[in-house]
């Protein structure tokens, strides 16, 4: 017997055939390279820049003792969203690449579609840790060189050599401030992530 008004449930019979799904893309790179800008350029919602409180054990660390760790630090995290259609979303997560935050990347990269490594040619070494990390994890990534200086062209081949990338990993020039440019980076990543399996699709 139902008691009207005692509870509101999800309407019965709503078919969720494929089920709502969210895909994750990570935006990595050194401090000040333009991660926040990139997420902001493409997100359809006002991107959320949050300061996350972390315990000294970190989030995502299995703690069965029930004793909470002492809060020792905060980490900035940006995320934005692109709605592909009702029930299919793409989320971009950008967070610092310092070593002490890798546990956060462990969680974010789990099941992710791929990653954008933003690079600044003046401080290329800043993105070494991110490149190493994604290579070790086997997560597909593209390197996007943020051309702050606009007109000056960078040589993708030089960047590839400097980062020791394999031939398959795309290196693209971009301007993180411009949506059209960020769209290009993301479509390159998505195509790379499926391994060119559907290259004939346009």
């Amino acid at each position: 017997m139902e008691f009207a008004g005692s509870e509101r449930s999800r309407p019965a019979g709503v078919a969720l055939t494929a089920g709502p799904t969210a895909l994750k893309i990570l935006v990595a790179g050194g401090f000040g390279v333009g991660k926040t800008t990139m997420v902001g350029s493409i997100s359809e919602i006002r991107p959320l820049h949050t300061e996350e409180l972390l315990s000294d054990r970190g989030v995502g660390v299995d703690d069965t003792s029930g004793v909470e760790g002492k809060i020792t630090t905060t980490v900035a995290l940006d995320f934005g969203r692109i709605t592909i259609r009702e029930g299919l979303w793409l989320y971009l997560f950008g967070t610092p690449g310092q070593d002490r935050f890798w546990f956060m990347w462990d969680e974010l990269s789990l099941g992710a579609l791929g990653a954008v490594v933003l690079a600044d040619t003046r401080r290329l070494q800043d993105c070494f840790p991110a490149v190493d990390y994604f290579e070790q994890r086997g997560l597909p990534f593209v390197v996007a060189v943020n051309c702050f200086d606009g007109a000056r062209r960078h040589d993708p081949a030089k960047v590839r050599r400097a980062l020791g990338l394999d031939a398959a990993t795309p290196v693209v020039m971009c301007d993180a401030r411009h949506r059209a440019s960020v769209k290009e980076v993301l479509t390159t990543l998505v195509t790379h992530a499926v391994g060119g399996a559907y290259r004939h699709v346009d």
Binding site: L23, I84, L90, G111, L113, A193, A197, Y198, V201
Partner: peptide
């Protein structure tokens, strides 16, 4: 579901067009 398991040609096409 992990993206790599989830993404098939149809979803790939949708994502590409969505971007």
């Amino acid at each position: 579901r992990p993206a790599q398991q989830l993404i098939d040609e149809r979803i790939y096409r949708e994502v590409l067009h969505g971007i």
